[in-house]
């Protein structure tokens, strides 16, 4: 089980590195799906099968498909890849990457140095999650509903195209 965890972690990290170094948007998204599926396997190994299913359905399913739809609507040409390659030069990468890796090294040092008692992990099934979600966390569920409603209204408002004014005098006035 530990071996499976380490293999899956390596797949997740490698797929994420491929996402952040890829020049082609669609290829990066396919690697992103691989990364999300690997994280879902990690969830399953940690004894959280319900969250693993949610990860596959919502992250690898809905969100990535939404991004792919938007990329199809944008109708990017071949030169987008070349432009991305030009933007992602080595000099731009090194500074932020070095600083972030120093932060990561500190984080790993803190986590490894902490004395953590061995966990007695067992499977937390969807019934326990549901009882907790609609018991002590019910206010969070309601706030999530409000957030999703705001997301729908905001996406509709922002995504709406301006109505074209057909009359030429009105068009001059509007512009």
């Amino acid at each position: 089980m530990q071996l499976a965890f380490y293999i899956t972690s390596a797949i997740a990290v490698i797929a994420t590195v491929m996402v952040i170094t890829n020049h082609n948007l669609i290829h990066a998204l396919l690697y992103l799906v691989v990364s999300f599926l690997a994280v879902a396997v990690v969830f399953y190994l940690l004894g959280a099968p319900f969250v693993a299913a949610l990860e596959v359905i919502i992250y690898a399913g809905a969100i990535v498909v939404l991004i792919i739809f938007v990329i199809m609507m944008l109708n990017l040409k071949e030169e987008a890849v070349a432009q991305e390659r030009q933007w992602l030069s080595r000099g731009i990468i090194t500074g932020p990457a070095l600083l972030s890796l120093v932060l990561l090294a500190e984080l790993i040092y803190i986590i490894v140095g902490a004395q953590v008692a061995p966990s007695d992990a067992q499977i937390v099934d969807s019934k326990a999650v549901g009882m907790s979600l609609y018991g002590p966390y019910v206010i969070g569920v309601e706030l999530s509903g409000i957030l999703l409603m705001a997301g729908i209204v905001g996406a509709y408002h922002l995504g709406r195209q301006k109505k074209k004014i057909v009359h030429r005098f009105l068009e001059e006035e509007a512009s």
């Binding site: 530990q2 994420t16 952040i20 490894v112």
Partner: peptide, 23 residues
């Protein structure tokens, strides 16, 4: 059945977060 160590899971989360931050 040996369990996944907590430190390894947290380090994986930290590595993924750092990769996203770099990107």
């Amino acid at each position: 059945m040996d369990q996944v160590p907590t430190e390894a899971g947290l380090i994986l989360a930290g590595v993924l977060f750092t990769l996203g931050l770099i990107s």
